[in-house]
Computed example of a mutant assay.
Amino acid sequence: MRVRKLQQRRGWAFTLGAIILRPTFLLTTKPDWVGGTKIPATGGCVIAMNHLSHVDPLTAAVFTHDHGRLPRYLAKSGLFKNKALGYFMRAAGQIPVERSSVSAAGAYDAAVEAVRAGECIVVYPEGTITRDPDLWPMTGKSGAARIALETGCPVIPIGQWGAQELLAPYAKRPDLFPRKTIHIVVGDPVDLSDLADQPRTAAVLAEATDRIMAAITTIVEGIRGETAPAERFDPRQAGIAEIGNPHHDKRHDKRHDKRHDKGQGREAG
Results as ranks from 00 to 15, higher is better:
3 V>S: 10
4 R>K: 05
14 F>H: 15
19 I>N: 13
20 I>K: 07
21 L>Q: 15
21 L>K: 13
23 P>T: 14
32 D>T: 15
34 V>S: 12
35 G>R: 08
43 G>A: 03
46 V>A: 09
47 I>N: 14
49 M>F: 04
52 L>Y: 09
55 V>W: 11
56 D>Y: 10
59 T>V: 02
59 T>G: 05
62 V>P: 13
64 T>E: 09
69 R>L: 06
71 P>E: 02
71 P>D: 08
73 Y>C: 09
76 K>G: 07
79 L>N: 08
82 N>W: 04
89 M>W: 03
90 R>C: 03
97 V>R: 04
100 S>R: 01
105 A>D: 08
110 A>D: 06
110 A>R: 12
111 A>K: 02
111 A>F: 02
115 V>A: 11
116 R>K: 01
118 G>C: 07
126 E>D: 11
126 E>M: 06
129 I>F: 01
136 W>R: 04
136 W>K: 09
138 M>P: 05
139 T>N: 08
139 T>Q: 10
143 G>Y: 05
149 L>E: 00
149 L>D: 00
159 G>C: 13
161 W>A: 00
163 A>N: 15
165 E>R: 07
173 R>D: 03
177 F>K: 07
180 K>S: 06
184 I>D: 07
186 V>H: 04
189 P>R: 01
189 P>Y: 00
189 P>Q: 00
199 P>R: 00
200 R>A: 00
202 A>F: 01
207 E>M: 13
208 A>E: 01
211 R>D: 00
214 A>D: 14
215 A>W: 13
217 T>I: 10
219 I>H: 01
221 E>A: 08
222 G>E: 02
222 G>S: 06
223 I>E: 13
223 I>P: 04
226 E>N: 08
229 P>L: 09
234 D>Q: 14
235 P>E: 04
236 R>W: 04
240 I>E: 12
240 I>T: 14
241 A>W: 14
245 N>V: 09
247 H>A: 04
248 H>M: 12
248 H>E: 12
256 H>I: 13
260 H>M: 12
262 K>Y: 13
263 G>P: 07
268 A>N: 03
